[in-house]
Design a protein around this nucleic acid. Sequence first.
DNA 1: CCTTGACCTTCCCACCATGGGAAGCCCCAC
DNA 2: GTGGGGCTTCCCATGGTGGGAAGGTCAAGG
Lengths: 157, 157
Amino acid sequence: MSAAASVTIGVAARRTGISAKMIRYYEEIGLVTSAQRNAGGYRLYGPEDLHALRFVRRARDLGFSVEEIRALLALWRDRGRASAQVKALALGHVADLRRRIAALEDMARTLGDLARHCGGDARPDCPILDDLAGPPAPDDVGRRPERKRRARFTTHG
Amino acid sequence: MSAAASVTIGVAARRTGISAKMIRYYEEIGLVTSAQRNAGGYRLYGPEDLHALRFVRRARDLGFSVEEIRALLALWRDRGRASAQVKALALGHVADLRRRIAALEDMARTLGDLARHCGGDARPDCPILDDLAGPPAPDDVGRRPERKRRARFTTHG
DNA sequence: CCTTGACCTTCCCACCATGGGAAGCCCCAC
DNA sequence: GTGGGGCTTCCCATGGTGGGAAGGTCAAGG
Protein backbone atom coordinates (compact mmCIF):
# COMPACT_ATOMS: atom_id res chain seq x y z
CA MET A 1 0.00 0.00 0.00
CA SER A 2 2.68 2.46 0.93
CA ALA A 3 0.14 4.96 2.27
CA ALA A 4 -0.02 7.01 -0.87
CA ALA A 5 1.14 10.61 -0.85
CA SER A 6 -1.03 13.15 0.94
CA VAL A 7 -1.35 16.83 0.29
CA THR A 8 -2.53 19.79 2.30
CA ILE A 9 -5.81 21.53 1.71
CA GLY A 10 -4.36 24.25 -0.49
CA VAL A 11 -2.89 21.73 -2.88
CA ALA A 12 -6.09 19.71 -2.79
CA ALA A 13 -7.98 22.87 -3.65
CA ARG A 14 -5.79 23.56 -6.64
CA ARG A 15 -6.01 19.98 -7.81
CA THR A 16 -9.75 19.63 -7.51
CA GLY A 17 -10.91 23.10 -8.36
CA ILE A 18 -12.76 23.44 -5.08
CA SER A 19 -11.71 26.25 -2.78
CA ALA A 20 -10.15 25.34 0.53
CA LYS A 21 -13.06 27.08 2.17
CA MET A 22 -15.53 24.84 0.45
CA ILE A 23 -13.55 21.71 1.17
CA ARG A 24 -13.73 22.50 4.86
CA TYR A 25 -17.41 23.25 4.50
CA TYR A 26 -18.10 19.97 2.76
CA GLU A 27 -16.32 18.20 5.55
CA GLU A 28 -18.27 20.10 8.17
CA ILE A 29 -21.62 19.15 6.69
CA GLY A 30 -20.47 15.58 6.23
CA LEU A 31 -20.57 15.58 2.48
CA VAL A 32 -17.05 14.20 2.37
CA THR A 33 -15.35 12.19 5.07
CA SER A 34 -13.24 14.08 7.57
CA ALA A 35 -9.68 14.45 6.36
CA GLN A 36 -6.88 12.99 8.39
CA ARG A 37 -4.66 15.40 10.22
CA ASN A 38 -0.94 15.62 10.66
CA ALA A 39 0.68 16.33 13.99
CA GLY A 40 0.14 20.03 13.59
CA GLY A 41 -3.55 19.73 12.86
CA TYR A 42 -3.27 20.23 9.10
CA ARG A 43 -5.75 18.33 6.97
CA LEU A 44 -4.22 15.77 4.66
CA TYR A 45 -5.75 14.52 1.44
CA GLY A 46 -4.80 11.29 -0.28
CA PRO A 47 -5.66 10.25 -3.83
CA GLU A 48 -8.98 8.76 -2.79
CA ASP A 49 -9.97 11.98 -1.10
CA LEU A 50 -9.02 13.98 -4.15
CA HIS A 51 -11.00 11.63 -6.29
CA ALA A 52 -14.08 12.15 -4.16
CA LEU A 53 -13.58 15.90 -4.21
CA ARG A 54 -13.33 15.90 -7.97
CA PHE A 55 -16.53 13.88 -8.06
CA VAL A 56 -18.21 16.56 -5.99
CA ARG A 57 -16.80 19.26 -8.18
CA ARG A 58 -18.09 17.68 -11.33
CA ALA A 59 -21.50 17.11 -9.79
CA ARG A 60 -21.72 20.74 -8.77
CA ASP A 61 -20.75 21.74 -12.27
CA LEU A 62 -23.76 19.80 -13.41
CA GLY A 63 -25.92 21.75 -11.01
CA PHE A 64 -26.63 19.07 -8.45
CA SER A 65 -27.42 20.33 -4.98
CA VAL A 66 -25.32 19.27 -2.07
CA GLU A 67 -28.03 16.89 -0.95
CA GLU A 68 -28.23 15.31 -4.36
CA ILE A 69 -24.49 14.92 -4.38
CA ARG A 70 -24.70 13.24 -1.04
CA ALA A 71 -26.99 10.67 -2.60
CA LEU A 72 -24.79 10.34 -5.67
CA LEU A 73 -21.73 9.75 -3.54
CA ALA A 74 -23.53 7.05 -1.62
CA LEU A 75 -24.50 5.35 -4.87
CA TRP A 76 -20.98 5.73 -6.18
CA ARG A 77 -19.57 4.02 -3.14
CA ASP A 78 -22.21 1.32 -3.22
CA ARG A 79 -20.70 -1.13 -5.68
CA GLY A 80 -23.97 -3.00 -5.85
CA ARG A 81 -26.31 -0.11 -6.63
CA ALA A 82 -28.81 -0.42 -9.43
CA SER A 83 -28.04 2.03 -12.19
CA ALA A 84 -31.76 2.74 -12.22
CA GLN A 85 -31.35 4.66 -9.00
CA VAL A 86 -28.64 6.85 -10.43
CA LYS A 87 -30.61 7.41 -13.57
CA ALA A 88 -33.71 8.38 -11.65
CA LEU A 89 -31.76 10.90 -9.66
CA ALA A 90 -30.17 12.31 -12.76
CA LEU A 91 -33.42 12.54 -14.65
CA GLY A 92 -35.09 14.19 -11.71
CA HIS A 93 -32.40 16.79 -11.78
CA VAL A 94 -32.71 17.24 -15.51
CA ALA A 95 -36.43 17.83 -15.06
CA ASP A 96 -35.63 20.43 -12.45
CA LEU A 97 -33.17 22.11 -14.76
CA ARG A 98 -35.73 22.13 -17.55
CA ARG A 99 -38.27 23.73 -15.27
CA ARG A 100 -35.84 26.46 -14.30
CA ILE A 101 -34.87 26.96 -17.92
CA ALA A 102 -38.49 27.33 -18.91
CA ALA A 103 -39.07 29.90 -16.18
CA LEU A 104 -36.05 31.93 -17.22
CA GLU A 105 -37.06 31.71 -20.85
CA ASP A 106 -40.49 33.06 -20.04
CA MET A 107 -38.87 36.02 -18.42
CA ALA A 108 -36.38 36.56 -21.20
CA ARG A 109 -39.04 36.33 -23.86
CA THR A 110 -41.45 38.67 -22.14
CA LEU A 111 -38.79 41.18 -21.40
CA GLY A 112 -37.30 40.91 -24.86
CA ASP A 113 -40.71 41.61 -26.36
CA LEU A 114 -41.17 44.65 -24.18
CA ALA A 115 -37.72 45.93 -25.03
CA ARG A 116 -38.38 45.46 -28.69
CA HIS A 117 -41.31 47.84 -28.45
CA CYS A 118 -39.32 50.37 -26.52
CA GLY A 119 -37.95 53.29 -28.47
CA GLY A 120 -34.71 53.31 -26.58
CA ASP A 121 -34.23 56.96 -27.32
CA ALA A 122 -34.24 60.19 -25.38
CA ARG A 123 -38.00 60.27 -24.95
CA PRO A 124 -39.55 59.05 -21.72
CA ASP A 125 -42.30 56.82 -23.11
CA CYS A 126 -41.47 53.25 -22.31
CA PRO A 127 -43.58 50.12 -22.64
CA ILE A 128 -41.27 48.34 -20.25
CA LEU A 129 -42.11 50.65 -17.39
CA ASP A 130 -45.72 50.69 -18.49
CA ASP A 131 -45.87 46.94 -18.22
CA LEU A 132 -44.19 46.91 -14.84
CA ALA A 133 -46.55 49.57 -13.58
CA GLY A 134 -49.50 47.51 -14.72
CA PRO A 135 -53.04 48.78 -15.36
CA PRO A 136 -53.28 52.42 -14.21
CA ALA A 137 -54.17 51.89 -10.58
CA PRO A 138 -57.01 49.48 -9.92
CA ASP A 139 -57.65 51.46 -6.76
CA ASP A 140 -59.10 54.89 -6.66
CA VAL A 141 -56.39 56.87 -8.26
CA GLY A 142 -58.28 59.07 -10.67
CA ARG A 143 -60.79 59.72 -7.90
CA ARG A 144 -64.05 58.12 -8.71
CA PRO A 145 -67.06 60.28 -7.64
CA GLU A 146 -68.66 59.78 -4.25
CA ARG A 147 -68.75 56.01 -3.90
CA LYS A 148 -67.98 56.19 -0.18
CA ARG A 149 -65.21 53.68 0.12
CA ARG A 150 -64.79 52.47 3.58
CA ALA A 151 -61.37 51.11 4.32
CA ARG A 152 -60.40 50.11 7.77
CA PHE A 153 -57.61 52.07 9.37
CA THR A 154 -57.84 55.34 7.52
CA THR A 155 -55.01 57.57 8.58
CA HIS A 156 -54.93 60.45 11.00
CA GLY A 157 -57.62 62.74 9.81
CA MET B 1 -57.15 65.42 -1.07
CA SER B 2 -59.25 63.19 1.07
CA ALA B 3 -56.23 61.10 1.92
CA ALA B 4 -57.23 58.04 -0.03
CA ALA B 5 -58.04 54.83 1.78
CA SER B 6 -55.15 53.05 3.43
CA VAL B 7 -54.85 49.41 4.25
CA THR B 8 -52.75 47.42 6.66
CA ILE B 9 -49.84 45.30 5.61
CA GLY B 10 -51.81 42.07 5.45
CA VAL B 11 -54.28 43.53 3.02
CA ALA B 12 -51.46 45.09 1.03
CA ALA B 13 -49.80 41.70 0.88
CA ARG B 14 -52.94 40.07 -0.45
CA ARG B 15 -53.48 42.82 -2.97
CA THR B 16 -49.96 42.90 -4.31
CA GLY B 17 -48.95 39.30 -4.04
CA ILE B 18 -45.96 40.16 -1.89
CA SER B 19 -45.83 38.64 1.56
CA ALA B 20 -46.01 40.96 4.53
CA LYS B 21 -42.55 39.76 5.47
CA MET B 22 -41.14 40.86 2.18
CA ILE B 23 -42.94 44.18 2.24
CA ARG B 24 -41.28 44.95 5.56
CA TYR B 25 -37.97 43.78 4.14
CA TYR B 26 -38.29 46.00 1.08
CA GLU B 27 -38.98 48.91 3.35
CA GLU B 28 -36.01 48.06 5.53
CA ILE B 29 -33.59 48.00 2.62
CA GLY B 30 -35.09 51.18 1.24
CA LEU B 31 -36.49 49.65 -1.91
CA VAL B 32 -39.86 51.18 -1.18
CA THR B 33 -40.53 54.27 0.88
CA SER B 34 -41.33 53.76 4.54
CA ALA B 35 -45.02 53.26 5.05
CA GLN B 36 -46.92 55.68 7.21
CA ARG B 37 -48.06 54.44 10.57
CA ASN B 38 -51.28 54.79 12.44
CA ALA B 39 -51.43 55.64 16.12
CA GLY B 40 -50.80 52.05 17.09
CA GLY B 41 -47.72 51.67 14.96
CA TYR B 42 -49.40 49.74 12.16
CA ARG B 43 -48.07 50.36 8.68
CA LEU B 44 -50.59 51.88 6.30
CA TYR B 45 -50.55 51.57 2.54
CA GLY B 46 -52.32 53.89 0.17
CA PRO B 47 -53.01 53.33 -3.52
CA GLU B 48 -49.67 54.79 -4.56
CA ASP B 49 -47.85 52.43 -2.24
CA LEU B 50 -49.76 49.47 -3.56
CA HIS B 51 -48.96 50.55 -7.07
CA ALA B 52 -45.25 50.65 -6.28
CA LEU B 53 -45.44 47.28 -4.60
CA ARG B 54 -47.13 45.78 -7.61
CA PHE B 55 -44.41 47.26 -9.75
CA VAL B 56 -41.84 45.53 -7.60
CA ARG B 57 -43.78 42.31 -7.75
CA ARG B 58 -43.93 42.34 -11.50
CA ALA B 59 -40.26 43.17 -11.79
CA ARG B 60 -39.36 40.28 -9.53
CA ASP B 61 -41.52 38.03 -11.63
CA LEU B 62 -39.36 39.05 -14.53
CA GLY B 63 -36.29 38.06 -12.61
CA PHE B 64 -34.89 41.49 -11.83
CA SER B 65 -32.71 41.68 -8.76
CA VAL B 66 -33.59 44.04 -5.97
CA GLU B 67 -30.85 46.40 -7.07
CA GLU B 68 -32.11 46.43 -10.62
CA ILE B 69 -35.60 47.11 -9.35
CA ARG B 70 -34.25 49.99 -7.35
CA ALA B 71 -32.96 51.47 -10.59
CA LEU B 72 -36.20 50.72 -12.41
CA LEU B 73 -38.23 52.40 -9.72
CA ALA B 74 -36.04 55.46 -9.93
CA LEU B 75 -36.56 55.59 -13.67
CA TRP B 76 -40.25 55.03 -13.24
CA ARG B 77 -40.51 57.97 -10.88
CA ASP B 78 -38.36 60.14 -13.08
CA ARG B 79 -40.89 61.49 -15.52
CA GLY B 80 -38.12 62.81 -17.72
CA ARG B 81 -36.04 59.66 -18.08
CA ALA B 82 -34.85 58.57 -21.48
CA SER B 83 -36.43 55.30 -22.46
CA ALA B 84 -32.96 54.29 -23.64
CA GLN B 85 -31.93 53.91 -20.02
CA VAL B 86 -34.78 51.59 -19.26
CA LYS B 87 -34.17 49.61 -22.38
CA ALA B 88 -30.48 49.24 -21.59
CA LEU B 89 -31.30 47.97 -18.15
CA ALA B 90 -33.83 45.53 -19.53
CA LEU B 91 -31.55 44.27 -22.25
CA GLY B 92 -28.74 43.82 -19.78
CA HIS B 93 -31.02 41.69 -17.71
CA VAL B 94 -32.13 39.70 -20.73
CA ALA B 95 -28.50 39.03 -21.55
CA ASP B 96 -28.00 37.84 -18.01
CA LEU B 97 -31.01 35.57 -18.28
CA ARG B 98 -29.72 34.17 -21.55
CA ARG B 99 -26.38 33.43 -19.97
CA ARG B 100 -27.99 31.59 -17.11
CA ILE B 101 -30.23 29.72 -19.49
CA ALA B 102 -27.23 28.65 -21.55
CA ALA B 103 -25.43 27.42 -18.45
CA LEU B 104 -28.44 25.40 -17.32
CA GLU B 105 -28.92 24.03 -20.79
CA ASP B 106 -25.35 22.83 -20.88
CA MET B 107 -25.96 20.96 -17.69
CA ALA B 108 -29.26 19.54 -18.82
CA ARG B 109 -27.87 18.43 -22.14
CA THR B 110 -24.78 16.81 -20.68
CA LEU B 111 -26.72 15.07 -17.99
CA GLY B 112 -29.43 14.03 -20.40
CA ASP B 113 -26.82 12.48 -22.67
CA LEU B 114 -25.29 10.60 -19.81
CA ALA B 115 -28.66 9.37 -18.65
CA ARG B 116 -29.52 8.23 -22.13
CA HIS B 117 -26.55 5.91 -22.09
CA CYS B 118 -27.38 4.57 -18.69
CA GLY B 119 -29.13 1.23 -18.57
CA GLY B 120 -31.39 2.28 -15.76
CA ASP B 121 -31.79 -1.30 -14.69
CA ALA B 122 -30.74 -3.45 -11.76
CA ARG B 123 -27.13 -3.64 -12.81
CA PRO B 124 -24.57 -1.33 -11.23
CA ASP B 125 -22.79 -0.14 -14.37
CA CYS B 126 -23.53 3.51 -14.86
CA PRO B 127 -22.02 6.03 -17.23
CA ILE B 128 -23.36 8.83 -15.10
CA LEU B 129 -21.29 7.85 -12.10
CA ASP B 130 -18.39 7.06 -14.40
CA ASP B 131 -18.47 10.55 -15.76
CA LEU B 132 -18.73 12.12 -12.34
CA ALA B 133 -15.83 10.03 -11.12
CA GLY B 134 -13.77 11.19 -14.06
CA PRO B 135 -10.69 9.50 -15.48
CA PRO B 136 -9.65 6.64 -13.17
CA ALA B 137 -7.52 8.59 -10.74
CA PRO B 138 -4.88 10.81 -12.29
CA ASP B 139 -2.85 10.17 -9.17
CA ASP B 140 -1.27 6.90 -8.34
CA VAL B 141 -4.28 4.72 -7.86
CA GLY B 142 -3.46 1.66 -9.94
CA ARG B 143 0.01 1.85 -8.38
CA ARG B 144 2.51 2.71 -11.00
CA PRO B 145 5.81 0.85 -10.45
CA GLU B 146 8.54 2.50 -8.42
CA ARG B 147 8.48 6.10 -9.70
CA LYS B 148 9.28 7.50 -6.29
CA ARG B 149 6.72 10.26 -5.97
CA ARG B 150 7.67 12.88 -3.49
CA ALA B 151 4.81 14.77 -1.96
CA ARG B 152 5.23 17.13 0.93
CA PHE B 153 3.55 16.25 4.17
CA THR B 154 3.28 12.49 3.87
CA THR B 155 1.30 11.13 6.75
CA HIS B 156 2.49 9.60 9.94
CA GLY B 157 4.43 6.62 8.71
C1' DC C 1 -66.47 47.61 29.95
C1' DC C 2 -63.92 43.52 29.09
C1' DT C 3 -62.81 39.62 26.49
C1' DT C 4 -61.70 37.38 22.34
C1' DG C 5 -59.30 36.58 18.33
C1' DA C 6 -57.34 38.33 14.28
C1' DC C 7 -53.86 41.20 13.09
C1' DC C 8 -49.88 43.83 13.75
C1' DT C 9 -45.12 44.96 15.77
C1' DT C 10 -40.03 43.82 16.45
C1' DC C 11 -36.44 40.52 16.92
C1' DC C 12 -33.95 36.48 16.05
C1' DC C 13 -32.98 32.22 13.38
C1' DA C 14 -32.70 29.34 9.16
C1' DC C 15 -31.90 28.30 4.46
C1' DC C 16 -27.95 27.44 0.38
C1' DA C 17 -23.41 27.80 -1.07
C1' DT C 18 -20.00 30.79 -1.12
C1' DG C 19 -16.40 34.37 0.03
C1' DG C 20 -13.77 37.62 3.30
C1' DG C 21 -11.05 38.43 7.01
C1' DA C 22 -8.83 38.25 11.74
C1' DA C 23 -6.04 36.02 15.21
C1' DG C 24 -3.03 32.67 15.95
C1' DC C 25 -0.35 28.29 15.05
C1' DC C 26 2.70 25.24 11.85
C1' DC C 27 6.23 24.19 8.63
C1' DC C 28 10.08 24.74 5.97
C1' DA C 29 13.96 27.14 3.92
C1' DC C 30 17.44 30.10 4.59
C1' DG D 1 16.03 31.44 14.66
C1' DT D 2 13.63 34.16 11.73
C1' DG D 3 10.66 35.18 7.89
C1' DG D 4 6.88 34.18 5.21
C1' DG D 5 3.50 31.45 3.41
C1' DG D 6 0.20 28.11 4.56
C1' DC D 7 -2.87 26.27 7.79
C1' DT D 8 -6.30 26.43 11.79
C1' DT D 9 -10.78 28.14 13.83
C1' DC D 10 -14.22 31.64 14.33
C1' DC D 11 -17.28 35.13 12.95
C1' DC D 12 -19.65 37.85 9.36
C1' DA D 13 -21.88 38.78 4.83
C1' DT D 14 -24.28 37.83 0.74
C1' DG D 15 -29.78 37.47 -1.49
C1' DG D 16 -34.15 36.87 -0.89
C1' DT D 17 -37.26 34.25 1.54
C1' DG D 18 -39.69 31.89 5.37
C1' DG D 19 -40.64 30.55 10.44
C1' DG D 20 -41.69 31.66 14.89
C1' DA D 21 -41.78 33.91 19.61
C1' DA D 22 -43.22 37.65 22.62
C1' DG D 23 -45.98 41.29 23.01
C1' DG D 24 -49.03 45.34 21.44
C1' DT D 25 -53.60 46.93 18.72
C1' DC D 26 -57.86 46.79 16.88
C1' DA D 27 -62.73 45.87 16.22
C1' DA D 28 -66.57 43.33 17.49
C1' DG D 29 -69.63 41.07 20.53
C1' DG D 30 -71.33 39.91 24.94
